Every structure is written in structure tokens, then in C-alpha cells.
Simulated scan of single mutants.
Amino acid sequence: MSIKDLTTEQRNPNTLHIDTMSTLEMVNAINAEDQKVAEAVEKQNTKIAQAIDLASINFKKGGRLIYIGAGTSGRLGVLDAVELVPTYSIEPERAIGLIAGGKKAMFLSIEHAEDSEELAKKDLKNLHLSAKDIVLGIAASGRTPYVVGGLKWANQVGALTISLACVASSKTGKLAKVSVETVVGPEVITGSTRMKAGTAQKMVLNMISTGVMIKQGKVYQNIMIDVKPTNSKLVDRATRIIHECGNVSIETAANLLQKADMQVPVAIIMAQTSWDANKAKTYLQNANKD
């Protein structure tokens, strides 16, 4: 399918005259289109759940979440990868965002970089991609060469491949083990896939990465118990988490956090059992082997 025939490239009949609308009419039109995004994502819930289950198995074995994309799609992947580190205390090398054009492309548009399949293969080779890894190929059009090349190489290596596209029967979907296709329809501004398509991609990435982290034991009830307290806000949050989960005072929670070397799960076990830090750490290490 040529680019001009993609759903993401069609003109939206509901916004043909957005340039002459009042500001409120403009906002209402954009909001009305955005409401279609959640519906498109919901239709892919079964596929998203499958992606979470398979990715969780690989991640448990030591595999990495590796996001690949170009432009907005690439930036959303980098964002998801980066935020997993402080939120769930995973090592930075366990979640990696690759964007066509490299780090510079996060801040400057390097559009030509997305046209190279070989560039993605090179980037993944530099990471020493293995069969344990999970490669999430993100492309609104479902045909970006950089993402196509990355998925092809990941398949050769035997890694788990997951694709996110915003068109049906996408090229990337045909390459991936799990294909998530959130068809959000034509954009408010023709071809501006940073809008509805980008929103859909962010929603799906949130679901996949959060689901994987839940299945790693990073969440207790609905609390992110493995948060890394790297600033005053996160130290305060960590203290309140220990207070709630351990049923101890705020003062005791703060003290336990210090004794646990700022490891929230360890402090929670200490609060619940009156064990010392070493015993709590040993208990958690053994539990994570199951």
C-alpha cells in the first residue's frame, strides 16, 4: 500500500474547515476526535494482553525491553523506556529506546534516518540483541523502513517482536509475533500522526510496560512498591508507601527506608515482619526466583 492510501494520510471530513473555526470550535473538534482513540485501543485489548504475557516471560529470563521507532513514535518509545527506571527500579540497560538518527533525533528532526532498514539492524547489533529480548517496533504508518528493518533483524535473532501501528494489515504487523493495530482514523490535521496516532501509541505502551512490571512483582495491590527514591518527591512517596503497606507510622517508615538502603520492598518486609534488612533482602531474593 502506498503512503497516500494509508488511513493515517487521509483527510478528516470532520475538520475540513478547522482553519476557519472559532477557538472553542477547534478545541471541541480535536477533543471529539481524541475520544475515538480509547475505542480504537480497546479493540486491541486481546492483542495487548498477549504482548504483555509473552514479554513478561522474556523479561523474567533477563531479556530487555527494546523500543524502536522514528520521529514521534521513536520519542514515545524512548520516553516509556526512560520512565521505567525510576518508577520500577529496573536497571537502565533493561529498558532501551532506539530512535532513528540517534539521541540527537530526540530534540531535532532527522527525518531521513527513518528510511534505512540497515540503520536499525546496526543499532540492534550494537546492543548485542539476543533471543531473550523483546523488540517493540512503533510506527504509526506501519511501514517505516527503520522499524521494518529492526523487526526483521530481531526475528532472525529469535527475539520476541511486537509491533504497534495505527493502520490495519500493516507491514510491521506482518513481521511481528504480536501485532497491535489501533486504527484511529484520519488525523485532525492531515498526516499529523503526533496527534491521535501518538496518543494511541502512548496508551498502548503504558499498558504493555506497566503490565510487564506488574508481572515482575513490582506492584503490590495498586502501589508501585519498587520505586527508586532519587529525589525529595520520590523519598516522600516511598515513605508513604512503606507507611501504608507496612502499617507503621510515617516516622518509622522513614527510619526503615534508611535501614533498608533506600530499597522500598525491603523496608516493607521489615515493617511487616520486624526482620532486619539482611533477612528481608534474602526473603525477597528467594521469592523472585519463583
Rank of each mutant, 00 (worst) to 15 (best):
R75W: 11
D53F: 07
S22N: 09
V41Q: 01
G246S: 01
A100S: 11
P86L: 07
K289P: 03
L65E: 02
M195H: 07
N14F: 15
D276C: 07
E114Q: 11
I52C: 12
L175I: 12
M1K: 13
V27E: 08
I57C: 04
V85P: 00
E187M: 10
E187F: 13
S169Q: 15
A271I: 08
T239Q: 02
V37F: 05
R94N: 12
R143H: 02
T193Y: 05
K36R: 13
T15Q: 03
K125V: 02
A105N: 09
D5Y: 13
E25P: 06
I223C: 05
R64A: 10
A95K: 03
T190V: 13
K171E: 13
L124H: 06
G142N: 04
L16K: 14
T23M: 13
D133R: 01
T182V: 14
S116E: 06
A29L: 08
D34V: 08
P13E: 09
V184D: 03
Q263V: 07
Y283R: 10
E251L: 08
V78M: 10
L136T: 03
A260P: 08
N222V: 10
A254Q: 13
D226G: 05
A159S: 15
Y283S: 11
G71T: 01
A254H: 10
I242F: 00
H128F: 09
K125C: 07
T161N: 04
G71S: 09
L108N: 12
S109M: 08
I189S: 02
K215P: 04
E9A: 12
K228V: 04
A287N: 07
M195K: 03
A55Y: 05
A32N: 14
P92V: 07
L108E: 14
M1D: 05
A51V: 00
K152N: 12
Q44C: 14
G71H: 06
M26I: 15
K174I: 05
G149W: 02
A168Y: 04
T87C: 07
G102E: 09
I3H: 09
T23L: 14
G217F: 01
K171F: 00
L6Q: 01
A267E: 02
Y67H: 10
R237P: 06
I90F: 02
I208F: 04
Q156F: 07
I241G: 03
G142V: 08
K121H: 02
E25K: 13
V157E: 00
N58V: 03
I134P: 07
V235K: 12
I241H: 00
P86T: 06
V204G: 02
V27L: 14
I57E: 14
D290S: 11
N45I: 15
D123C: 12
I110K: 12
K215H: 13
V266N: 01
A51Q: 02
L119Y: 03
Y88S: 04
Y67F: 15
